[in-house]
Each structure stands twice: as structure tokens, then as C-alpha cells.
Simulated scan of single mutants.
Amino acid sequence: MSDRVEFGSWPTPVERAPRLAAALGLGAGDLWIKRDDLTGLGGGGNKVRKLEWTVGAALADGADTLVTTGAPQSNHARLTAAAAARTGLGSVLVFPGGPGASHSGNLALDGLFNARVVWAGQVDAAGLDEAAREVCARLRASGARPALIPFGGSSRLGARGYERCGEELRGQVPGLDTVAVALGSGGTMAGLVTSLGPDAVLGVHVGAVAEPDAAVAALTDADPARLRIRTDQVGAGYGTLTDPVRAALKLAARTEGMVLDPTYTGRALAGLAAAVASGDVRPGERTVFLHSGGLPGFFGHPQAPAFAESAADPAG
């Protein structure tokens, strides 16, 4: 019997994107968008599929509080707080650094969902995980029953959500050749690889983890050497807005009226554009771009809103 709790609206739609396809150098009928930004809960996004499984397991274990980690503008943290609100649980979000002057973007929604934020100071990934475990220990000492949801929702259990997504895609786009997806903590790509095979999934590394191939391989039985991963879109780091991403944000908006975020989906589209330019993705192939959401992070990014405000052509 499954412990999955249903949070989303399934299946999410796929939409043809002929103008974007042509701009990328593909045939007008080659490209579809998988709209996992429309998953429903908490503003939507890919983490909803993972949380159906991880929160389901937490509820089955009798948890009354969800604890997770991430960057301050984490989409996963925002959706964990939303899942907690939906199921009547408390939520604690453990972030590196300290509170800044801005509380926009995902941080604003974290507060709206009544999440408690704990700032862990200047810590690396291991230190952040240890800080979350200490939060769980304090909660247990006070009589609470916390469940620690993994970074990015990425575990073998969470990846089952994207196994189901791959099955949806098989029915929606028969004969698909490539699904392009942002690769953050690894669970989204891992689930797709499990259901579609490693040759059909192109992951675009965003800089969230040090070794993206190892992160994906830990969550799937696929041979790491067969994983298709592009690492050329990180630029100066996870939080930076690169020139290829600027171009991708404008391209998606101006060809399809589609809004991407500067950290995940913007990098994923920049990576797909680079893959077409290099011949890794070719005209005539059935290609899907997985839109994994993340719009609130656009408004919390230190550079993206100003870039967007100044992006209009004065002559237009």
C-alpha cells in the first residue's frame, strides 16, 4: 500500500512551442513544453511530485513537523512549507547565512505558509545538514515529531514522482527522443532516467551540488557513464545570472510568452540551446523541455528583476 499523498493535478499538460523551436534551430513541430510549473500546490513546480512521496512517508510515520534545507530562495523549501500547511503540519526551513534586508520571492511565501526559518550561518552542505539534524533533535526534545525532508526533496523515494512523470510523457509525446531538464539536487533527472532511460534525458547542471553525476547516480540504477549532463551553464556559480541565461529568459518570453526563472529553468533552456548548437539535440527529433517552475525565485533574485525591467527594446 502506497503512502503517497496527492498534492498536484495530474497529468500536467504538454504544449507545442513552434516559435521557440524555430528560434533554437529545431523544426517547428519538434518541441513540446511539459508544464510542471502547473502542479498546483503552493505556486507549483517540480518539487510537488517528490513531496507527494516524502510527505506521505512522514505522515505514515506520525510526523507533526516537516524540516528541510535549501538556499534562502529555495523552491523546495517553499513547497515543503505549502505541503505542511495542506496537511496540517508545522514546518521549519533551515537556510545558510543570516536574514538579509530583502524578504521577497520565495521567502515571502515561506512566511505566508507560516514556516519558521532557522538561519544556520556560514556553513557548507554538510554543515547545513547537521544544522537541520540539530533542529530535529531540539524539536524531539520539546515533544514534537519532526520528519527531515531531504535537500531538494531528492531521495530514491522522492524520485518516484518523476518516474511517474516519465510515464506521463510516454503517453503524451510518443516516441520522444530527449527531455531537457534542470539538474539541481538530482531527483528530477533520476526519476526521469529510471522511467525513460539515460539516453532520453538531458540534465543541465545549475551548480546546486558539487558532483551532479554522482547526485543523479545515487538515486537511480543507471550507469553514471551513460548520463547526459551538461555542465556548461553554471557560470560563476549557482546564484549568478549569466549571459546565456539572460538570452534564454528573453527567448522564452518573446517566442512563447513563457516565464522562466534565472537559476533553474533559465539555465535548462540555455543548456538546450547549447545542445542544439552542438548537435547533441537535432532537428527532426521529438524534444521536450520540462518547465519545473520557480517563478517566485525570479522576484527574489538579486539581478533578475532589474534585468527584466531594462530588457525592453526602446525602439519597440
Rank of each mutant, 00 (worst) to 15 (best):
G293C: 06
P262G: 06
P262F: 14
D280N: 04
G284L: 06
A248W: 13
A308N: 01
G293K: 05
G271K: 12
R267W: 08
V276S: 06
S292V: 14
E309L: 15
G297S: 08
Q303M: 06
G294M: 01
A270N: 02
P296Q: 05
V288G: 08
F289W: 12
R267D: 05
L290K: 01
L251S: 08
A268R: 02
L251Q: 14
L251Y: 06
G257C: 07
A306K: 02
G266D: 10
A270E: 02
A304Q: 04
K250E: 15
E309Q: 15
H301P: 04
F289H: 01
F299H: 06
A273V: 11
E256G: 10
D280G: 13
A308G: 12
A252F: 04
G266Q: 09
R286T: 03
S292A: 11
A274V: 07
A252G: 05
L260T: 03
P262L: 01
R286V: 01
R286W: 11
E285G: 03
E256N: 11
H301R: 01
A312F: 14
A253S: 14
P302M: 07
D261T: 10
F289M: 01
V281I: 02
S278N: 08
A253R: 14
A253H: 03
V288H: 08
G271W: 06
L269R: 10
V259S: 11
L290T: 00
V276R: 09
L290I: 00
